[in-house]
Amino acid sequence: MSKLALYVPLEAKPGKEMEVAEFLRSALPLVQAEAGTVSWYAIQEGPSSFAIFDTFNDEAGRAAHLNGKVAAALMARAADLFAKSPAIHKIDILTDKLPKSGG
């Protein structure tokens, strides 16, 4: 079970909603290359509200993600895309329910 996570709420600047959605979609290949990132979700919570939620088995995986290409790209585009600077919340996972692997 993954024990650690990140939650990053994002508020698009007016008129930048489609750019934010595309930016998040374009980040998937970068995240797929991260061995320590167990799961990664880019979500839209409302017309201009988005978020990233990702999980990790250990602090090393979470640290690698925070120092990786997605985080760098997010911060590089923050002033252009977001109404305020992204807040990165480090959270602990208490329990989960996941699909069973295997057949």
Rank of each mutant, 00 (worst) to 15 (best):
I91R: 05
G61L: 09
K84W: 01
A79Q: 04
G15F: 05
A64E: 09
D54T: 01
E45D: 12
S101C: 10
I91V: 12
E19Y: 11
L30K: 15
K97M: 08
N57W: 04
G36L: 13
E45M: 13
H65I: 07
K3G: 07
A87S: 10
E11F: 07
A27Q: 15
T95M: 11
N57R: 02
A76W: 00
P47K: 03
E19C: 10
K84V: 04
A27K: 12
A87I: 07
A87M: 08
L98A: 06
A79D: 13
I52N: 07
R25S: 15
M1N: 06
A76L: 00
E11Q: 12
V31I: 14
L74C: 08
S26C: 13
N57A: 04
M1Y: 09
L24N: 09
A71P: 02
I88M: 08
I93H: 05
T37G: 14
F50Y: 03
R62E: 06
A78H: 01
D54P: 11
D92T: 02
A21E: 15
K16I: 10
A12Q: 09
N57Y: 04
F56L: 08
F50N: 03
L6W: 10
G46A: 06
E22G: 03
D92S: 08
L98G: 00
R62T: 02
A87V: 11
L24A: 11
A35F: 14
K69F: 05
A76G: 01
Y41Q: 13
V31C: 14
S2C: 08
W40T: 00
R62P: 03
V20L: 08
D92M: 00
P99E: 05
A71L: 02
A73D: 05
G103W: 12
